[in-house]
Design a protein around this nucleic acid. Structure first.
Lengths: 192, 192
DNA sequence: TCATTTGTGTTAGTCACTACCAACTTGGTA
DNA sequence: TACCAAGTTGGTAGTGACTAACACAAATGA
């Protein structure tokens, strides 16, 4: 599958256009008050095309770019001792990487204010949790303990994300994540 | 509003009948493969009646009896020192209270295996989280820290619930919750 | 007994989403 | 250049969750 470049580019363009119009309309009129047909019209395509690029309406907002970052950083931190600290450091570092992303902020604000999006977003933590457990490797002890640690760290990070979105992205995201983790699982940013 | 007893009783009966048939059918055929109309027919009512008693199909499974228990126990534990320990103790105690509830177990297994239910269930943690923060009271320090601690503890408990449901309720739920909390936020069952 | 409230059923409608089929465009090939 | 295969799109019809509006029956309170 050599993936001819012209087709891939066109596909990526329409995909981005659809998502951009969707997030804009959702932010303006509200998620529930905006139909997929309206998004399609704004993007200049048919409703069918929207569903071909995004399996559900929720997926127009829910693209997780943070997940792969976190998993990669966890895998790279094999030296650090307690799993919660490995995960915590990875989360703080990943938070730093996305600071300043206005599009992510807009989508995050939608996710927090809309029930359907909020629910699916939290469910995505499930996938990320498993990715983190896998990234921890075999030497992280009991898988159950690793799952519990990962889910707790993700929940704490989510609290920070909510606060950041409420502050309209003005506060320091990495600092918030570190503070939330400190309150939940103890001080994880203290370097070994 | 004196709530005439005969009407209240009939209402509670139909409500319970609808939910029982719903959970049974969902467990047998799968949540997505069962329509609300089928649930209504099994319960001997019309589809409209189902929607009058349960706002959405998901609510046929998602009734949170654990939430009020946890919030009450947190409020009653004003003496304990760190918030995470207050919350952790409340969660372990509440877990003990629901051990042996087969209906809860069946619903939990549905929640875990079905994406829509899983997502909504996790979103309900949001409400419970706020209830816990309120129950902690004003002396619990920074509200943000309390939110982070509560969400992390709930996430750890959820990991225990998942494991318990996978074990078909055979394992010790309170023990699992305590173990998950220990792995995530440190040992919370150690008595002060 | 009578008026009010409440529970229920019916119908028609919106919207997310799917299956199926037809048309067009692109990419490589004879 | 002509042509075939594959990918992209649009239209139509359908399912299912959910809502609104109207009518009917039963139960409550006077």
């Amino acid at each position: 599958m050599p993936e001819s470049p012209l087709r891939a580019q066109r596909r990526a363009e329409t995909q981005r256009a659809i998502q951009a119009h969707a997030v804009r309309l959702f932010s303006e009129r509200g998620y529930d008050a905006t139909t997929v047909t309206e998004v399609a019209e704004a993007a200049g395509v048919s409703a069918m095309t929207v569903y071909r690029h995004f399996p559900t309406k929720e997926d127009l907002v829910l693209v997780d770019e943070l997940g792969p970052l976190v998993a990669a950083r966890v895998a790279a931190s094999a030296g650090v001792r307690p799993p919660v600290r490995r995960i915590g450091q990875a989360l703080v570092e990943s938070a730093t990487a996305v600071t300043g992303d206005r599009f992510l902020l807009a989508r995050l604000q939608l996710m927090i204010s809309t029930q359907a999006l909020r629910a699916r977003h939290l469910d995505n933590h499930y996938v990320l949790q498993q990715a983190i457990v896998d990234a921890l490797g075999a030497d992280a002890g009991d898988p159950f303990d690793a799952e519990a640690a990962a889910s707790a760290c993700l929940a704490a990070m989510h609290t920070a994300l909510v606060r950041w979105a409420q502050d309209d992205g003005r506060s320091d995201l990495a600092g918030l994540v570190a503070k939330a983790l400190a309150a939940a699982v103890g001080d994880p940013v203290r370097d070994h």
